[in-house]
């Protein structure tokens, strides 16, 4: 299963990732407020995640990490372990 992780404590709730996700797996959680005072974006742990990394591309705070079960090589400019 592919997945992403979002560092909610630094999220400013701009919702660019919500717009970017074609599978609608990310949403702004109105119930939670982080230390910065924003409603953070949360990942729904959906099975449908393709690991396309569009959310990570658009995140202005660079808070999203993307994991793929199996897939192509890591992007060459990324220092992925």
């Amino acid at each position: 299963m592919n997945k992403i992780t979002i560092r909610e404590e630094r999220c400013k709730g701009c919702a660019y990732c919500v717009l970017a996700c074609k599978r609608e797996l990310i949403r702004i959680d109105p119930e939670r407020i982080n230390n910065l005072g924003y409603n953070p974006a949360v990942f729904s742990n959906g099975e449908a995640c393709t690991g396309c990394a569009l959310c990570a591309e658009i995140c202005p705070e660079v808070l999203i990490e993307v994991f793929r079960e199996r897939g192509k090589v890591a992007l060459k400019w990324q220092n992925a372990e």
Partner: peptide, 29 residues
Amino acid sequence: MQKIFARPATLLDTGFHFCPGCHHGIVHR
């Protein structure tokens, strides 16, 4: 499980001061 997208090493692990929705962070990245 392979990490395919992460913060670049040169980008320090600090929160930006930019407003929500500002694109400066993407240019930095």
